[in-house]
Design a protein around this nucleic acid. Sequence first.
DNA 1: CTTGACCTTCCAATGATGGGAAGGCCTATC
DNA 2: GATAGGCCTTCCCATCATTGGAAGGTCAAG
Lengths: 145, 145
Amino acid sequence: MNIGEAAKNSGVSAKMIRYYEQTGLIPSAGRSASGYRTYTGTDVQMLRFIRRARDLGFQVEAIGELLALWRDRSRQSADVKRLAQAQIAGLRRKIIEMESMVATLDHLAQGCSGDHRPDCPILADLEGEASLVAPACHSGPGFNR
Amino acid sequence: MNIGEAAKNSGVSAKMIRYYEQTGLIPSAGRSASGYRTYTGTDVQMLRFIRRARDLGFQVEAIGELLALWRDRSRQSADVKRLAQAQIAGLRRKIIEMESMVATLDHLAQGCSGDHRPDCPILADLEGEASLVAPACHSGPGFNR
DNA sequence: CTTGACCTTCCAATGATGGGAAGGCCTATC
DNA sequence: GATAGGCCTTCCCATCATTGGAAGGTCAAG
C-alpha cells in the first residue's frame, strides 16, 4: 500500500511517516517502480505502535528504544518496564509542576473581584509582591515572606 | 544598567530579553552611546513580571495581554481574571490528559513482571491489543503475536 | 488526453530557548 | 598607552514534533 493508505490505517500522518524514516526511527520503506513508498501490514503495525507510544507521551527517542525492545525477541521485560516507569515519573513530575501553577493561579483568581475595577491581586502578584504560593489562606495579618 | 545586569536582576536571560524585544513583547530598550541596551528599574520590574508569568505557564502571547492590562490603569480586573482562568483551564486540561497517560502506563507496568523474560504487557498493548486501559488482568493464554 | 488525486523532494515555520562566532566596547592593571 | 578579559552587539543555527506549501512526477478513471 502507498503512504497515504498506511497513514490512514495507522493514524500517523504521511508527513510524519516520512519524517520518522528520515530520522531513522523506522527503516526505509520499500519503493515501487515509480518511486512511491510501499508499506506492508507489518509496517502499519509498527506505525500504530509508534502512534500509541506517542499517545502515551513518549518522546521519539524513547519510542526508538521501545521499538528496539519490541523487535528483540530476547529482550528482558525489565527493560521495557524501566522505560515505562521513567515515563511515568516524568509525567508525574510535570503534573505536579502544573498543579502547583494551578494552585497559585486559583488562589490569585479567587482573590480577584473580576469586575470593572482595576485593582487585581493577580497583577499585583506578577508585579512582584513576593509570595509565590501563599502557604495557606489564614486571613491573619500574616504577610508572606 | 546593561542587559547582563538586567538579566541577573530579573531572572530573564539576556538572550530572552533581546528576543522579547525583537518580537515586540517589550518595547525597545534605550541605547548607550556605544549601542549597548540600557535598562531602568522599571524595565527590570517588567522583566520580572514576565518571568513570573512564565513560571505560571503563560505563553508569551498571553503575557503580552497581561502586560497590556498591567499598564492600563483603567483596566477591568475581570479581564485579568478571564486570562487567569483560561490559563487554569488549559493547565487542568493538560493535567487530565497526562493523568490518563499515567493511569494507562501504571496499569501496564504493574502487569509487567519486570524480569529477564521477554513477555511484556506494555509492548503487547503498544502493539495494538486494542484495550486502551485493560479493565482487568485476566491472565489469558499469553504469548503475543 | 485530461483531470484530479496521489506521490515525490525540498524548504520554511512554529515556540521558547540555548549555543556559538565574529567583532566592538569598557575597565583595570601594568 | 597598551593589553587582557569581560561585557556587549548582530547573525546564524539547533532543538522537538509537526504542519504547510511549492514544484513537479505518477496513476486511474472518464
